[in-house]
């Protein structure tokens, strides 16, 4: 989206090999390639003193400043890496046009999009990531902030071990204020299911929409009665079925904290594992797991194990018995 504002600076495109030198801190960054671009500027992979980092640069100085302010508060949430860590903030004066462009340098998060990861590694990761995300959200909410613009584009899975991380912090808003930035599909205001006030429940609604997006990559219309549409979709999505009661609560804003939701999601996942192990013991055929192909192939050798064990014991006993017969 291009907005016309009073100050007009030419948009910037940096090419590989270009060097950016900070006006204030004098650090030098060599551009290695573009990582992506959004509403506010472009993000490049860069190198400084042999280390890789991500550099975001924009003609909108104030937007960069706002994002930096948020990243700074993230650094203060101790013992928890919420967003990418902030490495440098500076301006770069374009040698040709003389305009000054603001930029910041942050930790380079190398990873894969959430949907990609789940497709290649299996559905069971969905639950894990939800728990991770709920943990991070709990930390963020406790420190007085709401993420705001929670959506798949702003999430990335880094590894190993696989960890869901946040990239774009532009929507992060102090609790009690109006959400700074949002995307309609993930916004409860758009669905007529709540206000745009920054509250923990705002993020929890968006989290459910992130899960929806995994199974409806083209999203869907809200229709005449948006709430009904959501409930129907939830009911019709087999992968989300087991979480249905929690997700309904989250959509309706009935969780006032991420912790409550995490407890419920954990319970679902633990229960599921319990029933899985019971089934394993009873050696029932894995009917329900037909869709979870990754899982069932991993488990097959395990299931044969008790049998093999039996055979083994039987063989040893037989051997001893034979020896016994021979030597006695």
């Amino acid at each position: 989206m291009k907005m016309n504002q009073a100050s007009r600076k030419p948009e910037l495109t940096l090419s590989q090999g270009g060097v950016i030198k900070g006006k204030w801190h004098k650090n030098r960054y060599t551009i290695k390639g573009e990582l992506g671009h959004g509403a506010i500027g472009k993000v490049y992979l860069c190198e400084s003193n042999g280390k890789q980092a991500a550099l975001k640069i924009s003609e909108k100085s104030s937007s960069i400043t706002t994002e930096v302010n948020v990243l700074k508060t993230f650094q203060k949430v101790q013992g928890h890496r919420l967003g990418p860590s902030l490495l440098d903030v500076d301006d770069w004066v374009h040698p040709k046009n003389g305009h000054s462009y603001s930029f910041y340098v942050m930790e380079y998060l190398k990873g894969k999009p959430l949907s990609f990861f789940i497709k290649s590694h299996g559905e069971e990761w969905l639950g894990i990531f939800m728990l991770q995300l709920l943990d991070d959200l709990a930390k963020l909410h406790e420190s007085g902030w709401v993420f705001g613009d929670l959506k798949p584009d702003n999430l990335i899975v880094t590894y190993a071990p696989p960890r869901l991380r946040w990239i774009d912090v532009g929507g992060t808003t102090q609790i009690g204020r109006s959400i700074k930035e949002y995307t309609e599909f993930y916004d409860r205001g758009y669905w007529g299911m709540g206000s745009r006030k920054a509250e923990p429940s705002y993020d929890l609604f968006a989290l459910v929409m992130v899960m929806f997006h995994l199974y409806y990559p083209n999203r869907f219309e809200k229709g005449r009665s948006p709430e009904k549409t959501l409930m129907n979709k939830l009911h019709m999505t087999p992968q989300l079925k087991k979480f249905e009661p929690c997700l309904i609560k989250a959509l309706q804003g009935k969780y006032s904290s991420s912790k409550q939701m995490k407890r419920d999601i954990s319970a679902v996942l633990m229960n599921q594992q319990k029933t899985d192990t019971i089934k394993k013991k009873q050696q029932t055929p894995p009917v329900k797991r037909a869709t979870h192909q990754g899982k069932s192939t991993v488990r097959k050798p395990k299931k044969e194990h008790p049998f093999m064990e039996g055979v083994g014991i039987f063989a040893v006993v037989l051997l001893f018995y034979t020896f016994y017969l021979i030597f006695s």
Binding site: W24, S61, S62, T65, T66, V68, N69, K72, V89, D90, D91, S100, S102
Partner: peptide
């Protein structure tokens, strides 16, 4: 605003917000 050093610009932007 754009001429201020980054840290101070951050403080001013906070006020604006």
């Amino acid at each position: 605003l754009e001429e201020l050093p980054p840290d101070q610009r951050g403080e001013v932007m906070e006020v604006v917000e």
